[in-house]
Design a protein around this nucleic acid. Structure first.
Lengths: 337, 337
DNA sequence: TGTTGGCACTCGGGAAGACAGAGTGCCAGG
DNA sequence: CCTGGCACTCTGTCTTCCCGAGTGCCAACA
């Protein structure tokens, strides 16, 4: 009983603090939530909660503020994800449906998520690791230079300019292209590795160096660049939330690909909502912020992740609901196209 | 003489204010610049400059601050673009040289410019309007769906998923592709329009609807998306410059493609440095900021623009030097690849 | 006519002090 | 174990005050 009430008090503190952004005192709690006990009792509970490290008072005579640990408990045990309203769902659908290519899907998604949560949204481009080769195109640029365009089954297009070891005639390029396409069509990453070992041996010697170069670039593209591209939107929302301290750091982190990748990458299960709160973040500039992430993919394949970055005192249930919903819709769109 | 001295005073005011960020008074001016006259004389000049609207005093007993009009005069007549140091030039070269494709060139450019100026950099992707078609690729996705990939001579790759009016067999797709490539290779925008009118008539009737659809998409891609993509970097620098008021507005503007396009687009001569100061900006949120832009291109063709956004009290000579230098280097890189 | 030193005046911004209010901890009683 | 009461603490705000930078004007001077 006592424990239950204490948790209820913690929940009430989190909710009030999130909505008012001011330390919350025992009297206000008793007024706004019908906990059925007096302020004095609540004070005792608060003292206990503070001992356990869930809340904290900025000054001797101020109200209490949740700690990271407090938010963690709230997220894990005291709240449940809040589904979007029907209107919001419709808005998502219509907004995402109009996208014509992968770039636009990602762009729209990140904006949508930012607008929906009024925070900063982060979206990672779908990974290539699990995608397969749909088509390879080789376009001669000059004697020893070609542009390699790789089209995957997820609709992603990767392009690279490749310098060849020898000059090469156009008809040989055409031949290499057809050989490549025959060999690679439908291949996933693993299979491509096999082809790399195999294919050159079956070619006439004069074509081998060029083919080896091309294949190594393809492999490199599939492997190394698979999670490289991350975009964000909604930075303006940061200024609105009175961050006071640290805005600069947050903006810096957002422009640092490495930090973003760690933020999205170092999470546990791809298919779950992941919440990282304040000091749990892998980067000091992001103390004071929380990150809510989810994986998304076409069908049951996880392709990449997306998430929302906001102040630790964000509305977790709502944010989590939005992230989950958007991740699902993007998955549907990707599967459908 | 008098006029000359007044202009010198204005220049001194701008320089001091830019470096100290505090209203500058007559005594400080007399101390720091050897104008050869006493503070009292300077006061008279300042009064005159204020009458003419070049400077302004925040409060009755404060120093003077340049107005937008004052900065304008400074930029037009009192300053000259400051070239980069040799070290900076080398840094640019090595940093840009490593880029492997257009995406990376643009990404690196925008970061470079942001870092160099410690402000926000904005770069527009090279326009398609003046580029020519290098290659068209059509990849069947399903019976009535193909992916259209358009490769231009500037190395840009545009992709679109296209729904065809009828289902179409793979060999007919291959045929259409070769016809298209034969007809479009090397075509600029103008020529493509001709082809659109011409080509379908020379085909067997059953191929016409598909070809018409494809051509219209190609045209649309070349025309409508030509200046769509704009990226920025260095938002963190905004937080450092104590913008106090308006940071939010600026961030919002930066995320609004339309505003960015107007900022880059509505400038005069493509080949010149353009400076837009404070209220000269086409968007209210950008009062308080100035924008320094330049066109860049491969060889003598202007492809797009780039620029730097910062507080009105920026160091114009240095910023202009950096923008001009980066624009030139990017042009070289584009021409070389 | 243009320049200079002198002088009284103005006003913003920081320091110091006073005050109200919210919130706490503790204690004794139910 | 809960509750009301009470003394205490501290922050944020408001007011007041004062300093100093800077001005405009004036009379004198070259």
């Amino acid at each position: 009983m006592v424990d239950d009430r204490r948790l209820a008090v913690l929940r009430a503190i989190v909710e009030d603090y999130v909505s008012t952004n001011e330390p919350v005192g025992s009297k206000a709690l008793a007024d706004r939530h019908n906990l059925g006990v007096s302020p004095a009792t609540i004070r005792n509970d608060m003292a206990a909660l503070e001992d356990q490290g869930y809340i904290h008072q900025p000054h001797t005579s101020a109200g209490r503020v949740p700690t990271d640990k407090g938010y963690r408990l709230f997220v894990d045990r005291l709240s449940q994800v809040k589904p979007l309203t029907a209107a919001e769902r419709r808005a998502i659908e219509t907004f995402l449906a109009g996208a014509v290519d992968l770039d636009e899907i990602v762009t729209r998604t990140v904006r949508l998520l930012a607008q929906l949560t009024r925070q900063v949204a982060v979206v990672q481009y779908p990974s290539l690791t699990r995608s397969t080769v749909r088509h390879v195109e080789i376009v001669p640029l000059s004697e020893r230079r070609v542009m390699l365009v790789l089209i995957t089954n997820t609709g992603r297009v990767e392009q690279r300019v490749v310098d060849l070891p020898d000059s090469i005639a156009d008809d040989r390029v055409a031949h290499l292209r057809s050989v490549l396409n025959a060999a690679l069509d439908g291949c996933g990453l693993a299979k491509v590795s096999d082809v790399v070992a195999d294919l050159p041996e079956r070619l006439p010697p004069e074509d081998r160096p060029a083919m080896i170069t091309l294949l190594s670039v393809i492999l490199e593209t599939l492997v190394e660049r698979h999670e490289e591209k991350i975009v964000f939107a909604g930075a303006a929302n940061l200024a609105a939330a009175d961050f006071s301290v640290g805005l600069r750091d947050v903006l810096e982190a957002l422009e640092e690909q490495v930090v973003l990748m760690r933020l999205l990458g170092e999470t546990g299960d791809l298919s779950e909502l992941t919440v990282r709160i304040g000091s749990e973040n892998p980067y000091t500039g992001l103390r004071g912020t929380s990150f809510v992430a989810a994986g998304y993919g076409a069908g049951d394949k996880e392709l990449a992740r997306l998430g929302v970055l906001g102040p630790t005192r964000m509305d977790y249930p709502v944010t989590m609901g939005a992230v989950r919903a958007v991740a699902r819709y993007v998955g549907q769109i990707l599967a459908g196209s």
